[in-house]
Design a protein around this nucleic acid. Structure first.
Length: 434
RNA sequence: GGCGGGUUGCCCGAGUGGCCAAUGGGAACGGACUGUAAAUCCGUCGGCUUAGCCUACGAAGGUUCGAAUCCUUCACCCGCCA
């Protein structure tokens, strides 16, 4: 457990702080005793994704230094929409947002509900800003809150000004967002004595709107910490990109896929991200980064990231299964040597489809193209045929040349499994009917 | 309320009557090279019963042998004026 005095140093060392309000004051406050702090997550999708992980790293570090975390899920702000620089958000229905709030909240527990060994630290408080935002009347909003905001300053916020200068413009709805988020800080200050907000630096404008509001309404100086925006070496955002979002919810991204994501990241990113995401001691992290420089092919940094994060998000048991599955399936040349239990477990992690007798046509199996589609390795039959034509489809590690051919049942592995692969690392199992 | 501009495939963005399933770039996917890396090169990139057919260029109608391209109405966005 880190002592209160070092926690800011520790966060700096790990690269988790991009900006902060008066740091001297903040250090003094953290040293003086337990501080109540919060971080908010808006329900803009069914699940949080790896881009959100950094917030949990900060929340955890502060919690282990003895401070009191509050996790806010934005049931209200999720209905309004935080302005993005690019374009207006489409509004989601209240029912959908409420469903997402529940889903997200239920997935947050593993990050902060500490195991028995670490008890004595503060359990997180969970709140939903709908609780105080829904009852707010238009009159109160305008008289009590609005009076504290200068439009001039609101216009200067980065996301707002970007939108004012673009074709898209900005709706009054989204323009109001920062007032709601600022009010969250004020409410949490009043309800729980919260004096620190953490969040991504893309939220900095909203966060400081909150510290300003608390100062104006209570004459109290409260604090904020902003995490850096994590980008990949190629400049794209971590996690939420088109088509390839890595979610934290195991129903959306399996622990196996999650583990593989981290194992597959490039060297530059692995070295940069390990300090951010690993809670290993500083010297051990430094050694792993050095190892990546000396022996990049060993992929030790990637492996450490994959292990630490899979354990954190999905737990020890899932980590072991994901690891074992990867080992078995990437062994490449000796699939026939794998036993039924290994195959069943590995393919279950990677993604598997069970065929029934109804899937057989005159006793013959579906075509390779059909199986690629069934397993999700290809999005359509056309995509599957294309993949075969490109030489990217493999059955039991043998390249497939005819998309319309049905696999020979004699080629089945232990337990009636066929291993389908697309490209180097997309693997799925097909189990033949008994 | 008036006038003008816009809405194209995952994204950006060409295309002003047939040669358009639609130039180009990016993303993505596959192959080669590697280390389940990056860079590079090559290929693919709406769907299907795949030498053919179907669906698509905001929506619905219309003109035409033929429309992403012309006309009408509607929806939404942007700008200027009131």
């Amino acid at each position: 457990m880190t002592s209160s005095a070092d926690v800011v140093d520790d966060l700096h060392r790990r690269g988790l702080i991009a900006q902060s309000t008066d740091e001297g004051e903040l250090r003094a406050a953290l040293a003086a005793g337990p501080v109540t702090y919060y971080c908010g997550f808006d329900p803009t999708a069914r699940s949080l994704h790896v881009g959100h992980l950094i917030q949990f790293m900060v929340l955890r570090a502060l919690q282990r230094a003895g401070h009191q975390p509050i996790v806010l899920v934005g049931g209200a702000t999720g209905l309004i929409g935080d302005p993005r620089p690019s374009a207006e958000r489409t509004l989601n229905s209240p029912e959908l947002v409420a469903e997402w709030v529940e889903r997200i909240r239920s997935r947050v527990a593993p990050f902060l509900d500490l195991p028995a060994a670490e008890q004595g630290l503060s359990a997180p408080i969970y709140v939903n800003n709908l609780e105080w935002t829904a009852p707010l009347s238009a009159i109160d909003f305008l008289r009590e809150l609005g009076k504290n905001f200068r439009v001039n300053r609101m216009l200067a916020k980065e996301a707002v000004s970007a939108r004012l200068n673009s074709d898209a413009g900005i709706s009054y709805t989204e323009f109001s967002y920062q007032i709601l988020q600022a009010n969250d800080f004020k409410e949490l200050h009043e309800r729980h004595g919260c004096t620190l907000q953490t969040g991504g630096s893309d939220q900095w404008g909203n966060i400081t709107a909150g510290t300003d509001l608390v100062r104006r309404t209570h004459g109290v100086s409260v604090h904020a910490l902003g995490t850096p925006l994590i980008t990949r070496a190629d400049g794209t955002k971590i996690g939420k990109t088109e088509g390839a979002t890595v979610w934290l919810d195991p129903e959306l991204t399996s622990p196996y896929a999650f583990f593989q994501y981290w194992l597959g990241i490039d060297d530059v990113d692995a070295r940069a991200w390990l300090p951010l995401f690993s809670e290993r001691p500083a010297d051990e992290v430094a050694a792993l980064v050095q190892a990546s420089v000396d022996r990049p092919q060993g992929r030790e940094a990637q492996r450490a990231l994959a292990e630490d994060l899979t354990r954190l998000v999905h737990g020890e048991a899932e980590l072991h299964q994901a690891e074992a599955a990867g080992r078995a399936l990437f062994g490449r040349d000796d699939l026939t040597a794998l036993g039924e239990s290994t195959l069943t477990a590995s393919l279950g992690e990677a993604g598997a489809v069970e065929l029934s007798d109804d899937d057989l046509v005159d006793g013959a199996l579906p075509t390779v193209a059909a199986l690629l589609q069934r397993t999700g390795l290809a999005t359509s039959l056309s995509d599957a045929r294309r993949t075969v034509k490109e030489g990217g489809a493999y059955l039991n590690n043998e390249r497939v040349t005819d998309a319309e051919a049905a696999p020979d049942p004699a080629g089945q592995l232990a337990g009636g499994w066929l291993v389908l692969r697309r490209g180097k690392r997309n693997i799925a199992g097909v189990r033949l009917p008994r």
